[in-house]
Every structure is written in C-alpha cells, then in structure tokens.
Amino acid sequence: MKKAQIGVNSYEIDQEQDQFLLNGQPFNFDLAQSGDGDLHFLVNHKSYQTKVLSVNKEEKTVNVKVNNTPYTVSVKDNLDLLLAKLGMESVGQSGEKDVKAPMPGLILDVLVAKGQEVKKGDHLLILEAMKMENVIKCPSDGVISELFAVKGESVEKGKILLSL
C-alpha cells in the first residue's frame, strides 16, 4: 500500500491482483505517456493532462501540474507507513547531533570511523531488525565525534549509535 497526500486530502492506493484500489474502492484508469514527464489520465470518462515538474526522492514529494493547476504530492510507501505506526517517522531528521537506533536490532556493519567527515544521506551503519537490513543514514553534514556502535552488538530502540 502507498499513501499520497495532496494538500489536506489523503489517499490510500493499493493493488489487489490486477485491480487498483483508491481508499478501498476499485479505481479504473487509463494512462498514456506523451513526452518528457507528460502523462494523460482518463478516469471515469474524464481527461487529465499531467506534467511532472520535479521529483524529490529524499523528501518523497512530486511537484505536478494537472490540467495546468500545480500540486505537490507527498508519497509514503510501506516502510514509511510502518515507521510512522511504530512512532519513528522523525528518526534521522536534520539538526540532530546523536544518531539513535530506530528499533531494536543487531549492528551488522559500521561504515564510518571517529573523526570522519560525513554528508547528509551518507550511509553510517547497517542495522538488522525484523529480518531486514536497514541502512542508517546521516541526518546532516558533520564530523563523527563519538562512535558507540560496535559490529555484532545488539542494541535497543533509542540507543545512541554515534554523535556528530
């Protein structure tokens, strides 16, 4: 399932076999790509000319024009929804000095060293949790001032892994 937010309106998009569901209801549409970022949708016999203006993968937003009206669409996938459900949607936001474990798990690898300069989005370490490998990314530019995570160590949610 994915969740899209357009202004104050929220939409849940899911797929069951060969059918799409929009807010739990069957949703039939026809889509044609007509050029660089141009899409043409036909929904319930109504035409929508859409142009993708920009995509921000980090913030998971898409700026589009639909019939010449601009919209910003925020998209959340299954992982984003799970993190929100677990109360961890703000993990790794900019400005934090400590990077904490978002969930209990096992440190599989530490990818940085004390004193190393890092940039926002750099991979810091790999945490195995719920049988999945999770890459913990740097929340902001900085220098690793302390490294508390040790390869092979089990950590609890909220444990400080490193400081910038």
Rank of each mutant, 00 (worst) to 15 (best):
K100Y: 04
K100N: 08
D38M: 14
L31T: 06
P70G: 01
P70C: 01
F20G: 02
L21V: 00
K46R: 09
N44G: 08
K97V: 10
N28E: 13
L42W: 13
E59T: 10
F27D: 02
L31Q: 09
Q33W: 14
E16T: 09
L111G: 02
S54I: 12
L21S: 01
V112W: 01
K57M: 13
L21H: 00
F20A: 08
Q33D: 11
L22A: 05
P104D: 03
L106A: 05
L31K: 12
L83N: 01
E89M: 11
K57Q: 13
K57E: 12
E59S: 11
S74H: 15
S47C: 04
V43S: 01
K97N: 11
T61M: 10
S74P: 07
S74Q: 14
K65V: 12
S54P: 11
E58Q: 14
G35K: 05
V99P: 09
D18I: 14
E96W: 14
K60T: 06
D30T: 13
P70I: 02
N67T: 02
T69M: 02
A101C: 06
L111W: 00
L86N: 03
G24P: 00
N56L: 12
G35V: 05
Q25I: 02
L22E: 02
Q49H: 12
A32I: 15
D30Q: 13
Y48D: 00
I107K: 01
P102C: 10
V66L: 07
L108Y: 07
Y71T: 05
S94W: 02
L42M: 11
L83Q: 03
L83Y: 05
A101S: 12
N23T: 02
G37F: 15
P102W: 12
E16R: 12
K46A: 07
L111C: 01
V99G: 07
F20C: 10
S90Y: 15
G92Y: 02
M88V: 09
T69W: 10
G105V: 04
